[in-house]
Amino acid sequence: MRKSLRLLFFCGIFLYLYVPIAILIINAFNLNRYGLRWDGFTLKWFTAMAANPGLMEATRHSLTIAICAASAATAIGCLAAIGFTRYRFVGRRILQGTLMTLMMAPDIILAISLLVLFVGIGIALGFWSLLLSHITFCLPFTVMTVTARLQGFDRFLLDAARDLGASEGQLLRRVVLPLLRPALLSSWLLSFTLSLDDVIVSSFVTGPSYDVLPLKIFSMVKVGVKPEVNALATLMVALSLVLVVISQLLVKERDKNGKNK
């Protein structure tokens, strides 16, 4: 009795999470424009999506930003994490506190304050303002991921390498970075996802010269149902599915490495 109640509860939650997405995907292949009933299978919405230059341009922009922001945030985050674990310095706790606050702060506050900053120091709203903002909100997550990994690995490896005559640079390149590879990959994936998922920050810090997906989708669906958006959304769900699988494989690899040790 209690078991079946529990099952019912989980089914209810997952139905709630998945039914809307399922309907979205079904309608992407539905001949009926408004998705009122199933009229037959079609791929024409995908063709319509590909033929919509504005939508395609926004997709390209979003992907560019996501790739650049993920790469930069991972690189900076990795350096910062190494700095946090390797060096002792005044204000380390404050710095970590700032990072935590940045992570917990609601997107809208980050968005507004960055907008005020960019306008205040005269950075035009567009590619650069968007990129800098995305790097900023990804940064705490990459620092956390890499720090967690750094704390997990054997400090004696570093001592051993140094005893064998490795320089600081060699230590980083030949010992630390290879050990960090899974953590770097997963923080890259996380940042990439965060960047693609963002609606609020992008709405404020980009300008008309650089349209990105959330803004484009928002303006398209505000007035009604747009089947091209269903098609695009289906592709986005598929992409996030792939990303989740990859990140899970990374976790597995990490666990395996941990056991070997």
Partner: peptide, 10 residues
């Protein structure tokens, strides 16, 4: 991991 605007639309 899916865009939240897309989910709102769904």
């Amino acid at each position: 991991w899916t865009n939240s605007l897309v989910r709102t639309y769904a």
